[in-house]
Design a protein around this nucleic acid. Sequence first.
RNA 1: GGGGCGGUAGCUCAGCCGGUUAGAGCAGGGGACUCAUAAUCCCUUGGUCGUGGGUUCGAGUCCCACCCGCCCUACCA
Length: 533
Amino acid sequence: MAALEDHTSTDAYYVTTPIYYVNDRPHLGHAYTTVAGDVLTRWHRQRGEDVWYLTGTDEHGQKILRTAEANGVTPQQWCDKLVEEAWKPLWEHLRIANDDFIRTTQARHTDRVQEFVQDLYDKGEIYQGSYTGPYCVGCEEYKLPGELLPGATEDEKLCPVHKRPVEWLEEENYFFRLSAYGPKLLEFYAANPDFIQPASARNEVLRFVEQDLKDLSISRSTFDWGVPLPWDDKHVLYVWVDALQNYITAAGYGSDPERFARLWPASVHLVGKDILRFHAVIWPAMLMAAGLPLPRRVVANGWLMVGGEKMSKSNLTGIAPTDLTSHFGVDAYRYYFLRAIPFGTDGSFSWEDFTARYTSELANDFGNLASRVAAMVGKYFDGALPAATDHGPAEQAVADALVRAAAEADRKIGEELDFAGGIAAVFEFVKLVNGYLTEQEPWKVAKSPDGRDRLATVLYTAAEALRATAVLLNPLMPDSAAKLWASLGAEPALGALAEQRIATVADWGRLPAGATVTKGEILFPRLEEKAAV
RNA sequence: GGGGCGGUAGCUCAGCCGGUUAGAGCAGGGGACUCAUAAUCCCUUGGUCGUGGGUUCGAGUCCCACCCGCCCUACCA
C-alpha cells in the first residue's frame, strides 16, 4: 500500500536503525529491528541501488551515568566496553552489513550537534526558561501532571509507577519551541500520508499532535554526561535531542556536503513503537526548525512477545540472540522473526514455533528441495546440468510462477516492508517446485529408455528455479543462499551471488546447461532434540 | 486519567468500503510416491469470530458498553 519510492536516481537509499541505548547488552528486540533493516538494504543493493545502512549507539544520559557508576567505571569506559564486546560482535555474528556505525560520544557527532543546536539558538528556536513539575524521587524524573494519580489529600498526587507522593521541583532549563510546530507537522502528515507507518502508528501520532504540543525541555543541569550546550556549559543536552541527530551527523551534515546531499533525507527510519514519538514528532520539528528536509518514512515495528506473554525487560534479556543462533543457526534466526511476525504488529514467538517453522519450511520444503535436485542431477547426469530440450506447459507454469513470486517479493519486501508477505511469496514458489517434481516423477522417467530429454528438462527446470530462489533469498539468508549458489555451480557463468539483480532474477534460463551441480552440505540439517529452553 | 492498537480453528495469523455454506500455514487423521534431510505430493477432522446490547433484509465486518492483553503519556527495538 505504501509504495513511496520517490527518491531520484541521484539519491541513495538510506536506512537507519534506532540508535540503541547502550545501557545494557543487545537483546532480541534490537536484533529484530537491525535484521529487518539489513534485509531491506541488502534487497535494495540487489536492485542495484546506491544504498547506505546506518546503525549505532546512543551513549549519553543519566541512566548510563548511573549504570557506569554502579559498575565502578567512567561512562565512556562503560560504553566502550559494551560497544566493542557486545554490540558490534552481535551485528557481525548476525551478518549485519551496515555501512557505518555511529556512536554519539564520537567527536564527529558531538561537534556537529553543538553546531546544530547553536544554529537553532541563534534562530530563536531555543529559549531559556524554568521547568516546574512534579518529580518522583523513585523514578528520579519529572512526571506529567496528567499521568499522576490522586493521593490521600486534595493537593497530594501520586507517581503512577511508584504510587508515592511526588514533589514539586523547579529547574532552570532551555526549551525548544516545539509547540510552534504542531500545525506544520499536521500539514506535513496530511501531505505525506505514508510518512508514518503502519496506520496504527500514524493514528497514534496524529491524535497526539492534535492535542497541542508543549515546548520541549532540551537541557539538563543536574548531571554532566552529555553534550554541553555551546552557549552555556552548565547544561548538557537532553539525551534524545542529541541522539536523534546521529542520522544527519553520520550522513555528513556539516562535514561533507556532497555526501550529505546524496544521503539525506533518509529513505526509512526504522524504529520501535515505543520511540515513535521522538522520530515522528520531535525529530521532524527539529529538522523544520533547522531548515532541513524531513525523512521520507518512519516505520514502527511492533513488540516481540514470548510464548504469548509480554516480553518484559527481564525475560527479554533472559533469551539472548545467541541462545537461538547457536541452536538454529544465524540464517534461520534471520528468517524466523521476519517470516513469523508481521512487521509493524506485535507478534508472539516461541521455541516450539521456531522449531516447527525450521523443520517444515526451511528443512523440509526448501533445504530438501535443494538436496533432491542436486542428488538427481548427480545420479542421472553425473553432476553436469543438462539442457532443457523439451520445455512444455508444465515447465512454463514454473517459469510463470517465478515471475509472479519475484514481483510480489520485490513489492512487498522492497517497497512495503512486508517481510513476512515477501518471504511467503518466495516459499510458495518453493512449494510449487516441489509439487512440479512430484508430478513429473523424474525418477520414473529415468527408468524409461526414451525419457532422456524429458528427464533433462525436468531437472533443468528445477535447478533453474533454485537459481532464482538463491538470488531472492540472498538478502534474507546470505550464508544458505551462498551454499545453494555454489551447489548449483552458478558462479562461473553468472558471477557472484550478490551481483545478481532482482530485475532479471525471473528471466528464465539464466543458469547455463553444463553447470557443475554438486550436492553440497545440507542447507538446514534436522534439529537435535532439545529438552528444555 | 487521556490517547493508540489488538482479542477469529490446538498454535500463529488473513479476512478492504457489512452480503452466498468464515480462510491459510503448521499441528492432528487418511492416502500416494521413493529422487531427497523418514523429506515430498494429494485428501481431510477442527471455529457459538472476547462478552452483552443495538443498527440492518443481512454483521468477525458498523455503533454503544464492558472484560482481557499490549504500547505511548516527554531516558527500554
